[in-house]
Amino acid sequence: MAIEGVKAKEQGKVYVGNLDETAKRAKQLLIGRLKLGKAVDWATSFSLWPVHLTTSCCGCEFAAAWSPRFDGEQFGALPWVGPRQTNLIIIEGTVTRKMACAVKVTWDQMPAPKFAIAMGACALDGGIFYNSYNIVRPWEIIPIDVYIPGCPPRPESVARAIVDLQRSIRSKGIASKWVEEGVRPDKPLVAPKQDVCSWWRG
């Protein structure tokens, strides 16, 4: 059935309205007029769900940080399964060339506002593997908010990093501004210099 006034090319498509426009207006109303910015920052800071991406052996201490002794869940951070539902990525140690693509793709799949923590000396600048031919510095691929030194860092320092990130989200209002403006206010997104996924296409 042809609908009048609709281009022939677009016949048969399902129309759900202009979602982008609606979302923009809703954002303006909620954050601009109703001053919900503080609430958004509060909610985001206490709901930092790290995505399940174990890049290297710091995953041991990452796992320990969510174990009963250190219990990362008390800060509201719950490791979750898929990137679509999370807003925090914790790079656990060395990122190899093969893994770099996974890091990049996972980061791209996460919905904004999203944050990143780099864990371990390897994620800072290579650490003990600084001269290896197979590693990539994670800050070349994604923007990092907090670095945790140590090889591996103790679970307490992971908790500390999460608390630090929470404070900076609340004090700088990163999340609310990000939601309102659509771009991150204080940090540009990183455009990787090298094509980390080149090997995939062969």
């Binding site: 093969k98 031919y133 197979n134 090997w199």
Partner: peptide, 21 residues
């Protein structure tokens, strides 16, 4: 284990030299 472009270099042969400490 390796991605194809590094596997081409055959990293464990003595021809492949890594920056030393």
């Amino acid at each position: 284990l390796l991605v194809p472009d590094i596997a081409d270099l055959k990293p464990l042969t003595k021809d492949f030299i890594v920056k030393e400490e």
